[in-house]
């Protein structure tokens, strides 16, 4: 009986959550289309400031921009549904190919960032929680506060000057070797560390107050066992879900980091395309990053629901 109940609530939760995600995807599809039509005259934007009226007319006709907006939207949306994200105005190749080419770099960078963020944030958060209210705790929270105030792109430049130029430990830009991932990965991680650290800390504080911790202590278990086996497992849930969400934010934030370090990923592609008026690419990258975020948020919710039945109602 329990199993049936469990499965039915779980299935209904999954169904509702999938339905919501699909709706959000559709909305994002509309938004990313509308976004590039903001200027009113897309053809003039593509042609650039030096174009003549004749140039603009040719572009308008070639790209089908003279059709009603609704027709253009459904034409584009139909192609997107088939996996065709349009063609780049600049490179004259399918956008999906461009993204696929650049995606591994951005994913590798995002994962590097995530790993660095977790390696720094989790231990610090746990230590702060274990010594709640002490000078160590305050020091760690102060680091989080200081970290939040550092502009990521500026940190990147400082690192380039320090480690790239003065010490010459790491390459200044590009990703020719694995070393190229270290600085951009760290900068990307930096944005996620404060949130991750605060959440680990508050989750651990809550977990350490629970009755089962007292029981474990009464049983005479060592502090290490208690913290790592009992408290951490219970504090992990919100941390795991925010990690998924932070990865989504990191991929979105890769625009800045990749531009600073000239990392040829999706974010750099987007920035180049924006500055060069290559709007099909911009549109596609916005949609693509949004869909990745939606998928990650869905995944986080699913994991939470699996671990905590209270959330499924």
């Amino acid at each position: 009986m329990h199993l049936v109940f469990y499965l039915s609530t779980m299935l209904s939760f999954i169904f509702r959550r999938l339905w919501l995600s699909a709706l959000v995807c559709l909305t994002v599809l509309v938004i990313s289309f509308m976004l590039t039509h903001l200027s009113g005259d897309l053809a003039a934007s593509i042609a650039g400031p030096n174009a003549t009226a004749a140039d603009i007319a040719i572009i308008t006709k070639n790209y089908g921009l003279d059709r009603p907006l609704v027709v253009q939207f459904f034409d584009w949306a139909g192609h997107v549904a088939e996996g065709d994200l349009g063609r780049s105005y600049l490179f004259h190749v399918p956008v999906s190919g461009l993204i696929r080419e650049r995606l591994p770099v951005t994913l590798a960078l995002g994962l590097t960032g995530l790993i660095i963020a977790m390696l720094i944030a989790l231990p610090l958060g746990i230590i702060a929680a274990m010594r709640e209210g002490s000078a160590i705790d305050r020091g760690i929270m102060l680091i989080a506060l200081l970290g939040q105030a550092v502009p990521g792109f500026w940190l990147g430049l400082l690192l380039i000057v320090l480690f790239g130029l003065n010490l010459q430990w790491l390459p200044i830009s590009g990703i020719d070797t694995w070393k190229g991932y270290i600085m951009p990965g760290f900068v990307l991680a930096f944005s996620a560390i404060p949130a991750l650290m605060r959440l680990t800390r508050s989750g651990m504080i809550e977990a350490l107050c629970a009755d089962y911790i007292r029981t474990a202590r009464a049983k005479g278990l060592s502090t290490t066992t208690i913290v790592l086996k009992h408290a951490l497992r219970n504090a992990a849930m919100p941390v795991v879900s925010i990690t998924a969400v932070q990865l989504g934010f990191m991929l979105g934030g890769s625009v800045v980091t990749e531009s600073v370090f000239a990392v040829p990923g999706v974010g750099y592609l987007a920035w180049e395309s924006i500055t060069k008026n290559d709007f099909p690419v911009v549109q596609a990258v916005v949609l693509f990053l949004a869909v990745i975020y939606i998928a990650l948020a869905l995944l986080a919710d699913m994991m939470n629901a699996l671990l905590d039945p209270r959330l499924r109602i």
Binding site: T36, G253, V255
Partner: peptide, 15 residues
Amino acid sequence: LSIPLILVALTVVAL
């Protein structure tokens, strides 16, 4: 939340 913040802001300012 699902819209990439910086990317969208950059695009709007560019256009």
